[in-house]
Design a protein around this nucleic acid. Sequence first.
DNA 1: CTTACATTTGGTTATTTAGCCAAATGAGCA
DNA 2: TGCTCATTTGGCTAAATAACCAAATGTAAG
Lengths: 125, 125
Amino acid sequence: MTDREKAQYEAKARVLKALAHPTRLWMVERLAEREHCVCELFEAVDADFSTVSKHLSVLRQAGIVDVEKRGKQMFYRLKVPCVLQFMGCIEAVLLDNAEVQCRAAGLTPVGDIALQARLNPGEIS
Amino acid sequence: MTDREKAQYEAKARVLKALAHPTRLWMVERLAEREHCVCELFEAVDADFSTVSKHLSVLRQAGIVDVEKRGKQMFYRLKVPCVLQFMGCIEAVLLDNAEVQCRAAGLTPVGDIALQARLNPGEIS
DNA sequence: CTTACATTTGGTTATTTAGCCAAATGAGCA
DNA sequence: TGCTCATTTGGCTAAATAACCAAATGTAAG
């Protein structure tokens, strides 16, 4: 692998890493619907204000979101809508994992139970 | 956000995190072409054998790749081809970033130079 | 120009991750 | 059975990440 190729994989990984956090993933979905100021996101997130701000900064540096200052507020919006396409695939991965887990446990995965099994193993009634 | 939703975002983030490493990203693309044993991937990667094995283990635990033991070797293959769709979008993000950087630097981004600018800032001739 | 508000930045700490080495496992072969 | 090869696991250290708090910045309003 050339240095050039290596740098490309590193750059791609950096973008994915920016998305690879539950709070940031949630934010991306919110920002896909419409722009939000930091304060709005803060209210829904249950974390320090500075934490929320830093998450947005990570997304911005990765080039995933855009920001515009208006008055006292900073308005963030999703810059690259195609990242939303990831969600469907990821859900498919999780569902598939759930089925594997269920099969291993001797359960019949039906509908939502499967996802629950993957997300909260041990909580299946 | 309910506990349930929170757990879902955490699960999704876990999958993305598994992909968010240059070596693992490279491996995923190789495994998309055809199955490979650990030794084949090792030869191309320039890292310890155990490091390669651990990367594959991360991908397996995320449910992204599958493994089958045949004889002495372990053969890994891509289990969820849809993750390949991510690549196009990520490249679009990088290209877009490059253009922003170039505009900021007063350059005209033409073709490949744009990507180079993003990947190796400061190396533009 | 002082205050209040929205957000970012810097500092600190705890946790997670990546890498290497050495040792353990497990399958096939002598 | 004992050897060898392919791979995984455990232990360790260095580096990266996430969270909080406190302090700094920048903007608008009084």
